[in-house]
Design a binder for these strands. Structure first.
Lengths: 242, 242
DNA sequence: GAGTGGTCTAGACCACCTC
DNA sequence: AGGTGGTCTAGACCACTCA
C-alpha cells in the first residue's frame, strides 16, 4: 500500500539476501526458480535475473544451468587487505637514491641478469620523529624511461605507476613474513637491531609477466598492523551491482 | 566469416577489456555509449549492458547515470589474500583443550567480562616432524552450544562454523604483525625462543557484531609466507559474470 | 520431455547531466 | 531539449539436467 520507490529488482534482492543472511536459507539450499520469483513478484524474468545477479556479485549465490540457483557456501579463508605503505599521517625521509648493481634477490625477482643496473630508492616512514617503517624499492634501469627524477616526485610508487606510464594491467604480489631487523635498516630507522619486524616484499608485474618494480618493506610495531577482512563485508567492495 | 560460438555480450566485453588492459583506453577515458555499441555490434542495448556489467564486475569500469561509462582507475593498494592456517600438507597436534578463565586480551576481543570461562584449543601445525606454526583459539563457553567435543572433530575452526551452527553472515578480521616467539609457544613448537614470527590474531564475529571466536597465530618462517595479490587478477575472484 | 538457467530482441519510460 | 545510463516488459530460442 505504501509508495515503494525502490526498484523491483532491488526489493527482490533485498528479501532474498535477508533470507540468506538470517540463516532462513542455508548454504546449499535451492533458491526459488526464476519463473517462480517472476510470478511471485508479478514482474518479468529479466528483472528477477537482475536481482539474482546482484546476489551472485555479492558471492551469496551460485547458479547452475539446468539445475537452479543455490545459496553459496561462504569462504572465510579469503581476505581483503589494504596496504598502501605510505599512510597520509606519516612523513617520508629519503635515505638513498642511486643506480646500483642489483642484489641477487632483486635480480631474480625482476628477471634481470645478475649485476644489472637498477634504480634503488631507499626511504624511511616517519611517525613524528620516530621511524616506523623502511622500504627499498628497485626499478629496472631503462634509459630514458622511468627516471629517478620522475620517481622522486611520486613518493608513492604505485601512484606513480598509475599515471599511464604503464598500462592499467599491473599485478602486485605481496609476500608477508617476519624477520629480524638487519643492521642497515636498524641504522636507517635509528632503532635496536634484531627487533622483530614484518618483512614484506612486493613485486609489480605487467600483464605479460614482465617485472617492473620490486620493494622490500620492514614494518616495525609502531607502524601498525596489517588488517585483513573476510566474509560478507569483504566481498562487497568487489561485488557488482547488476 | 568463421562460426562465432561465443555469446555476443562476451565478445563485446572481450574487445573492450582488451582495449582497456592494453592501455588503448586509459583510466578516466570514456567508453562508447550503450547506443553506439549496440549499433556497432548490431545488437540490442540489453546485450550491450550485459557486456558492460561484466566489466563493471571486474572493476575495470564505472558508470555514471546521465554521463556515461568510464575506465576505472585501478587500486593497487587492495589485496586479496588466502589464509586458511591449516594447509592440507600439514598435520595438526593438539597441545591443550580446556575451559579456562579468559586472558585479558581475549576477554576484551570477545567482549566478555574479565575472567569469563572460555574454551581454549591450543595446537601446533606440523610439517613432517617440525612444528611450523602454533595457534590458540578461544571460544565463548556457552553451555550446550559449541562443545569441546564438536570442535575437536573440526580442526579447522571456520569450517566448523560453516556447518550451520551460525548463520552464513560471519565476518573475520585478521590482524597481522610481527613478534618474538614467547616461551610457551617456543616450547610447544620445540624451537628457539625469541625467534621472529608472524603474529596474527583473528576475530570472528556475527553480523550483529557478537564475537564468536578469537585466535592467536604464531607462524614461523618454515610455515611459509602469506601471499596477497592485487590488481586485475585480484578482482576476478569476486567479480560477477553478469 | 519437462524444467531449469543462459542468451537475446525491440521497444518503453524514467532519472540524471549538460547545454 | 537532447543525450546518457537505469529500469522494465513480454515474449523467443538455446543449452543443460534429470527422470
Amino acid at each position: 500500500m505504501s509508495a515503494d520507490t525502490r526498484a523491483t529488482y532491488a526489493r527482490i534482492a533485498d528479501e532474498l539476501r535477508k533470507a540468506i543472511l538470517s540463516g532462513r536459507m542455508a548454504p546449499g539450499d535451492a533458491i526459488p526458480t526464476e519463473h517462480e520469483l517472476a510470478d511471485r513478484y508479478g514482474t518479468s524474468r529479466v528483472t528477477v535475473r537482475k536481482a539474482l545477479n546482484v546476489l551472485k556479485g555479492e558471492q551469496l549465490t551460485v547458479s547452475r544451468q539446468g539445475k537452479g540457483y543455490f545459496v553459496k557456501k561462504p569462504d572465510y579463508s579469503r581476505y581483503v587487505m589494504t596496504f598502501a605503505m605510505f599512510k597520509p599521517e606519516y612523513a617520508i625521509r629519503y635515505a638513498s637514491m642511486a643506480v646500483v648493481a642489483a642484489p641477487e634477490d632483486v635480480a631474480k625477482a625482476l628477471g634481470l641478469p645478475g649485476g644489472s643496473d637498477v634504480i634503488l630508492i631507499g626511504l624511511a616512514v616517519l611517525d613524528g620523529a620516530e621511524a616506523v617503517a623502511s622500504a627499498d624499492t628497485y626499478l629496472p634501469y631503462v634509459k630514458g624511461f622511468p627516471t629517478i627524477e620522475s620517481v622522486t616526485h611520486r613518493a608513492d610508487y604505485p601512484k606513480f605507476v598509475d599515471r599511464k606510464l604503464w598500462s592499467i594491467l599491473l599485478r602486485c604480489e605481496l609476500r608477508i613474513g617476519a624477520s629480524r631487523l638487519d643492521s642497515e635498516h636498524a641504522r636507517r630507522m635509528a632503532c635496536p637491531e634484531s627487533e622483530p619486524v614484518i618483512f614484506a616484499r612486493r613485486l609489480i608485474r605487467t600483464d605479460e609477466g614482465r617485472a617492473v618494480g620490486y620493494s622490500r618493506y620492514y614494518l616495525r610495531e609502531g607502524y601498525g598492523e596489517l588488517l585483513a577482512e573476510s566474509g560478507y563485508t569483504a566481498s562487497k567492495p568487489f561485488g557488482s551491482e547488476a
